[in-house]
Amino acid sequence: MDWGSILENTLRGFVGEQAIYFALAAIGLNIHFGYTGLLNFGQAVFMAAGAYGLALTVVYAEQSFWLGIFVGLFVFPVIMALILGVPTLRLRADYLAIVTIAAAEIVRLFLRSPKWDSVTGSSDGLGQYADTFYEFSPFEPRTRYGFGPLNFLGNQLWVVIIGWIVVAIVLVIVATLVRSPWGRVLKAIREDEDAARSLGKNAYFYKMQALILGGVIGAAGGLMRAIGTQSAQPDNFITDVTFLAWVALILGGAARVFGPVIGAMILWGVLSFTDTFLRQAVDQDIIPTSIMEGTQVGQVRFMLIGFSLALLAAFRPQGIFGNRDEMALDDR
């Protein structure tokens, strides 16, 4: 066992790109679910909106990277939120859950469809649209920068630094909003929509705003991911991606400003640890091939995700650091 590389990968999972993408996705979910009580099981669709907003603008429409950022951050996710929200936000919470999960799947199928291959690149997706982003990088693309066991390639480091800056900005905005009277109305809607309406609050309108805000933040996650990998593919946005964001949210505790960030960091720390650990164990025949092959490590990772999601929801609905008096999954 090479414990050095296990430690390295774990640390990289903890603060690396994946933690950033999912922190943003989970912050968006936190606005949806944690503060407003909206059951969005299609967060992947907002991430896809961000990624494809950028990719389509740059690759298909041949516009600038900056316009791509604008489209990915504001145009696509807002349109998506309107499409999802207008019909469902008047309905019971479970309907939004069902419609969002179905919509995410349908958008993915749509992106995969060979029929629009010339636009979307179908299952191969689009790539190489973020060169502008890396031009600003002060780091040498191929040099490793690091301190101690943690190190990144120049381009990776640039993504990580900008990514955490984005997360920080988003957190400041979210913190301001949820402590404002606007955030108070959201929480009231989460607690009891009828009560909020009886006090003159347009619950539908606020839910729409929350859906859009959370969607835009989720799209920022998708956008960062699309920049970090220089490729947007439909299968980056499968339903399991949404579920991962949920694990991050519940792990860190819903309705806490820092909850989703801490949750995403822990999630990817643990995932990277088990991944490296299992891979090494399989490679070195500590786990015999008859029990597990290299290709099955990924499957075990998902089992772990499912299992921890179930356990958390059952036994610690308020998150691992949560406080029962405040928002817990359990009260909804």
Binding site: L39, F41, D94, A97, D240, F243, W246, I250, Q296, Q299, V300, F302, M303, I305, G306, F307, S308, L309, A310, L311, L312, A313, A314, P317, L329, D330, D331, R332
Partner: peptide, 28 residues
């Protein structure tokens, strides 16, 4: 879970977790 008084939403999330778990066990 019902006896513990778990909320419907947390049970829903439990079922999502189980769905992922079982799906990948079946794949395995």
């Amino acid at each position: 879970l019902r006896d513990r008084g778990s909320s419907l939403i947390s049970m829903l999330v439990v079922s999502i977790g189980l769905s992922i778990l079982f799906r990948y066990v079946l794949l395995y």
